[in-house]
């Protein structure tokens, strides 16, 4: 069985490059999935099938790996992401309240994306910014010592003004 690229999308070349760099060894599965997610934003079934066939890894094994690691997402992300850190230091400093406030303000549950596809709300185990707890990461930018009002202001700036 020869793996064929699921589409003409140029991003498959990036995925191929990663697999080639590792000599298409089955053990580079996780590295390949990282590249897929980086390139496409999430792991689509077609992508999983393509990687499975290219690396000669059973389909169920690929699916098992993709769903084992929480860093991988099987759903497309919104245009913006808001990651509320739920690490110990952040939790002790009120991260739960921050999460609840985004949840009710943006009408979205953790792990989901708003119905207009603008914002994905996520939680993190710890983003390692404990010195600045509580921390929130908006579009890959870490905000420290976050308060509810500051968070809603920032979210308003980066997300809502585009509506």
């Amino acid at each position: 069985m020869k793996a064929e690229r699921p589409s003409d999308d140029k991003r498959w070349r990036l995925v191929d490059a990663t697999m080639r760099r590792h000599g298409h060894e089955p053990n580079c599965l996780i590295e390949a999935l990282h590249t897929v997610q980086e390139s496409f934003g999430y792991l689509e079934k077609d992508a999983l099938r393509y990687v499975a066939l290219s690396l000669r890894v059973p389909l169920s094994k690929v699916y098992g790996v993709a769903t084992f690691y929480h860093f991988f997402s099987m759903k497309p992300q919104g245009k913006h992401t808001c990651v509320v850190c739920m690490g110990t230091a952040c939790y002790i400093k009120g991260a739960q309240n921050l999460l609840d406030s985004v949840r009710s303000r943006m009408v979205v549950e953790p792990g989901d994306t708003t119905s207009d596809g603008q914002l994905s709300l996520l939680t993190a185990r710890c983003v390692g910014s404990c010195g600045l707890a509580p921390a929130v990461v908006i579009d890959n930018k870490v905000l420290g010592n976050v308060t509810e009002s500051r968070l809603s202001e920032t979210l308003g700036r980066s997300v809502e003004h585009e509506l």
């Binding site: 389909l59 169920s60 094994k61 699916y63 098992g64 769903t67 084992f68």
Partner: peptide
């Protein structure tokens, strides 16, 4: 030798699947 089955997810959410779930 088919490896149709595997486990997806983890912890209390884990379950057995065939192929791509």
């Amino acid at each position: 030798g088919a490896h149709t089955w595997d486990v997806m997810g983890r912890g209390i959410e884990a379950k057995v699947i065939t192929d791509l779930n």
